[in-house]
Structures are given as C-alpha cells and as structure tokens.
Design a protein around this nucleic acid. Structure first.
Lengths: 341, 341
DNA sequence: TAAACTTATTAAACAACTTTAATAAGTATC
DNA sequence: GATACTTATTAAAGTTGTTTAATAAGTTTA
C-alpha cells in the first residue's frame, strides 16, 4: 500500500520536478495550484532544491497588481541519463539531460556475445566516469523482460533469465530499468507525442523474426500471460493463412517496403482485428516499412471490414527515434523519482 | 495529483476495511504489518471504528508467548449496497452486505421505457427507505458508459447521453457507479475468482446483437477509443467471412449452445487471435452457451493456430452470477472509500 | 504622494502519522 | 513462585504538511 508521509514526500518532490519540466518554468503559486499542495510546502522544497542547484531562479514575473513573483526553472543538467540499446550487431548508447537533449551518442561493439556482460559493464563504467552526473540507466533489449529480468531472449542465451536491473543497481548504485525494444518504442511514441495517459496504441513492425506488435492499453504496456502478446504473426486471417503467411504470400522473403495488394489486405485485416478487439486510438507503422500513400490504402481497405468511424488513427513514425525516446522517458522517470540529496 | 495528508487518511481507512474483509478478522499488529502503517495509527482508526460499530471485537488470540492480542472483525452489516440490472424485459435488483451476502433480491418492470427514469427513481427510493443502511448504488446497463454517463445505448434513446451517476448522486447523496453489463461481468469474474490484479481476461458471449467480448487487461477494463472494444463480430477470419458470419454460417439464426464444427473453428480462430494479440491469462465462456466438452474441442482446435504453451486457460462461468458479482464489487469499492462518519 | 488595494512570501499554530520509550499482560524457567 | 523473556498496547516526542495570520512588495487612485 505504502500510504505513509515518506511516500507523500516522494510524490510531492517528483510532482514538482515533473511540473517544472512540463511548464519550462513556474512560480511557487503556480506549482501550488497545479499540484494542489500548500504554498509553504512548495516553498520549502524549492528553497532546498535551489540550494542544491536543482532549480534555478530566473528573475521576477511582471506584476499582476501586487508583489512580483519569483520564477523558477529546473536545471536540466542537474542529472543526466544513460540509454543503451543492445542489438545483434552493435550496442548504441546516448547520454541525455532532463529535457531530452542528447549530450553524446555513440556505439560500441555488440555485447550480445560470449562474455558480453563484462564488456557492457566496462563500457558503462567508462561513460559514468566521463559523466559523473549520470543518475539513471535505461537498457533496451530484443527480448522479453519482467521487472528487469531478461526472460526470453532467443539467440543470446547467456543473458537468458539474468536480472540485469538488479545486477547493475547493485554494481553502480544507480537506478536501472530494462525494457523490451518494442515496448520502449510504444512508450516513446506515447511520451513524445504527448498523448494523454490511458490511451491505447499499437506499434506494428516487421522484425527479422517476422512481424510483431507492441501494445499500450489504457497507458500500460501489455506483456501477456506468457509474454507472447504482440506475436501477431499467428493471427488467422484467411481460410488457410495466418498474418505472417499472408504477408509472405508463399514467396518466402518478405517484401519491404509494403506495396503489394495482398500485403495491404493482410494488414488491413489486422487493423480491423485490432479495432474490433481493443479499439485503439492509434496504430503506428514504421517509416522504413510503410509509406504515406500505403497507409491511406490500408485505411480504405480496413473500412471494408469495420465501420470507418471506429477506425483508429493510422500514422507513421520513426521506430529508432521512438525507441530512444522510450528509453529516455523510462530513465527520466527514474531520475524524477530520486530522493532529494 | 492529490498527495495530501487528507488523501492519506482515506487510503489508510480503505486499506483497513479491505484487509479486515479479506482476512475475515485481524489484530492491530497484523494490520500494521500488512498495510505498513504504524501501530498507533492503526490503533487510533480501529478505536474510532469500534465506537461507530463499524468493527467488532471478537475476543483475544491465543498467546504466542506474550500478552494476548485483541482480534477485530469488520461488521458486514454496517453498510449495505444496492445493485441494479437494467435489462430489456425487466429490472433486477439485489441488496447485499459487505461480505457479498444477498439480503434481498427481486425485480421490477423494465425501466428501459418511456419515462423509465422516474420509475427507476421511485423504485430505488422504496428500497432505500426499507434499508436505510444502503450506502452505494451500482447500476449495470446494456450500453457504453463513460464515467457514469450513458454514452451509447441503442434502442433506449431516452437514456442516451444521460449522466445517471451524477443525477442519482445529487438526488440520493449516496455514491453511485454505472457500468456496462459485460465489463461488470469481467470485473465480477476477476473479483470472485480472486484473480491477481494486473492479469488479463476475456469474457466471450453471444449477445442478442451478435457476439461480443469484454476485456480486462492488466487489471483494467478496456473500453476503446470509440467504446467499440469487444465488438469481435467484425474480426476477419476467413477469405470472405468475419467472426459473426462464420458463426452464423449463412443460416441466419445462430445456434446455441455451440456444437457445430464450423462454430468451433471460428471460436478457436478467435481464441488464437486473442492469444497472438494480448495473450490473456483466461478466456471465459458462458455456461448457457458452451459446454465443457466443447471447450476442450476449442482448445484442441486453437492449438492448430498457435503454440499450445501460450494458450490461455479456457473456462466456463455463469454470466448472470458474474454480472452480479461485478456490480457488487463496484458498489463495495464505493463503500470502502467512504469517509469515517 | 499617501491611502487603499493586490499579490507573494514568511511565520506561527495546528493536524496527522511515525518513532521510540514506557507500561501492561502474558509465558517459560530455575 | 520469582525472574527473565515475549508480545500487545499506550504515551510522549519528532516529522512533515496544512491552515491561518502577519508581513513584504507592488500597483492604483484620490
């Protein structure tokens, strides 16, 4: 349950941080109104945060008829985040500040190899030494993750069933989050487009291992009972073909970008299924797989199967970018929940 | 945000109530441990609640080596709930206490008619007069509901876009919840089987207006962006038939209970779709539509489409009963969140 | 330009939960 | 059966947020 004053403090603190970042800057009264926390409490927190260098005073507001209010902004460089993308062929990383600006981006050899863990550890160590303000680590992996433990990662058995989060939190004493690549992308899209919470999104992609989807429903990532959610390859669509078979059309290698009519019909049937089942607000396609004109064709084709007023917003986005945003947003969340020093 | 001491008080109070009902009875230490609230706070609340008659002392525990602890139980008759089921042909109601025992059950003529609101109001008035301890009203309706406002209720336009919750909360000064019938049933199943939170369930049924489904994902009811979630009729399944057409097989009136092979194949394709998309823990069929032997056939048929290790638990339940449980659980929630008198 | 009015901030009294110490009520053992 | 040990409960002191009153710093107007 955790309904204690200590918990309250954490919630208030992270509320102040989030509001300052959201608004860009704010006065104490604005924060008090927004967060519905009393003025003296806001004041006490802000005084301490200013002392720590976490917030900066940026002068006085114009008077609105009385004494002028002091305006504060969050110091975006106060904490940095580290995002790491584990991929088959390479490992990318990005260091970003609290407003999402990337301070440094780079790559190291893939760590999804024998003794990769050690390689990863030394890479992180170097980065933390160079940027001591790093206060969170977000790691994206091409596998299923349950609360920081890598659950199922076909092809990279040395990481299978390894508690990456626990390991690095102990090792570095910095909060760590580990998330599946697809789920991170959905989160990133959600966060970047500033979509209201508790909306539902579907991110559709053609992976190396066949098509898949990431779901966010009511604002939560969907993992499924056996972490099988999103394996849309298996959706039966025609008398004797499922989605994957329909996409491949018996020709073996898949065609990308999407262009053929049989592909469009298969996708529009999938869109119809999503709509009839979870009725999401938005379905997102990858910009390197689908073009604008094709999306329109898919929308048109879908309306053969379902009333078009229920059709979700079909949109295109940059998967890589959303993946980064997603890891950033997960890391930022960890930072904003950190206690006052 | 609402991170205030007042809010804290509410959370603690409802935590005590829930724990007492869940455990049947408890000592102050047990509550303090479970809820992670300090002993003195638990003690203060319990003293007040005993004074109000909300909890009852049921004697001393056996000693475990020291002073014997007093044991308390919740007084289930302290508050009553009223559940109302609006249906086409009749309106059922049930009055229940805090442990779910039904004190009285009955029916009145359907209120889904001209001037039905007035009829409903007087019916509720009579019940509240007879049972003044009624402290919550849960109303189930065959339509879409958004925060107590009936959003879409085909055939009963007089209720369309009416804020039933707001109306009765003003009128009776008792908290009211309004929920769609299917969503209530999913909630009821979830609550009754004491399923862990944040599981995913699908409740499948053949309504008068064709088949439909209710979803609970990660413990939340899924409504969809246009309240279209669950309209699984429209899922494309064969070259030229969607789920509804496949079930009806061109013969017009549907066959219930399910028995034919073409029905089984259609349902198993739907099961496969659910699994590949959201991978739920459980899919629930209605006991008046599907028999045990058929469920086994469906499971077998589904494994043609998806790996059977990911197949959800297929189970049968009593829809009417789950609907009642669902409304009870919604009403109970309202009661447990009521402030101390 | 001084009085009246606004708005921001600080100070003091209050409320509610936690922590720690003290007390009460048992059990076990020499 | 007195002493040591356990466990439950109560009491007192400490934290932390809220409310309300007081003060500071502006603006407007007679």
């Amino acid at each position: 349950m955790n309904a204690t004053p200590k918990r309250l403090r954490k919630v208030i603190l992270s509320g102040i941080r989030k509001s300052l970042l959201e608004f860009g800057s704010a006065t104490k009264v604005e924060l008090s109104d927004k967060l519905e926390i009393s003025f003296p409490t806001i004041s006490k927190f802000l005084t301490q945060m200013e002392k720590d260098g976490e917030v900066i005073s940026v002068g006085l507001d114009e008077s609105s008829g009385g004494r002028r209010a002091k305006r504060y902004m969050y110091n975006p460089e106060y904490m940095l985040g580290l995002a790491i993308f584990l991929e088959r062929t390479e490992t990318n990383y990005a260091i970003f500040n609290c407003v999402g600006e990337v301070k440094e981006q780079g790559k190291v050899p893939s760590v999804l190899v024998e003794d990769g863990l050690h390689l990863l550890t030394t890479s992180i160590e170097k980065l933390i030494t160079a940027y001591p303000k790093i206060s969170s680590i977000a790691i994206g992996v091409p596998g299923s993750v349950d609360n920081g433990r890598i659950f199922y990662i076909p092809g990279y058995e040395q990481f299978q069933n390894f508690d990456l989060k626990g390991f690095y939190e102990d090792y570095f004493s910095i909060p760590v989050v580990v998330e599946n690549d697809m789920n991170a992308a959905v989160l990133g899209f959600h966060h970047n487009r500033r979509i209201q919470d508790n909306q539902s999104l579907v991110y559709l992609y053609s992976g190396q291992n066949g098509p898949g989807a990431g779901f966010m429903i009511n604002g939560d990532v969907v993992r499924g009972s056996t972490f099988f959610a999103g394996e849309v390859s298996f959706v039966p669509q025609y008398n004797d073909r499922n989605f994957r078979q329909a996409l491949e059309n018996g020709t073996g290698p898949k065609e990308v970008p999407i262009s053929q009519d049989y592909q469009i019909d298969a996708i529009s049937r999938l869109v119809a299924s999503f709509t009839a089942i979870i009725n999401p607000h938005t379905i997102i396609f990858c910009n390197d797989e689908v073009e604008e004109a094709i999306v329109e064709k898919i929308a048109l084709a879908s309306s053969k199967y379902i009333p078009s007023e229920h059709l979700p917003d079909l949109t295109i986005s940059d998967w890589k970018q959303d993946y980064l945003y997603g890891l950033q947003s997960l890391g930022l969340d960890l930072m904003l929940n950190q206690p006052l020093k």
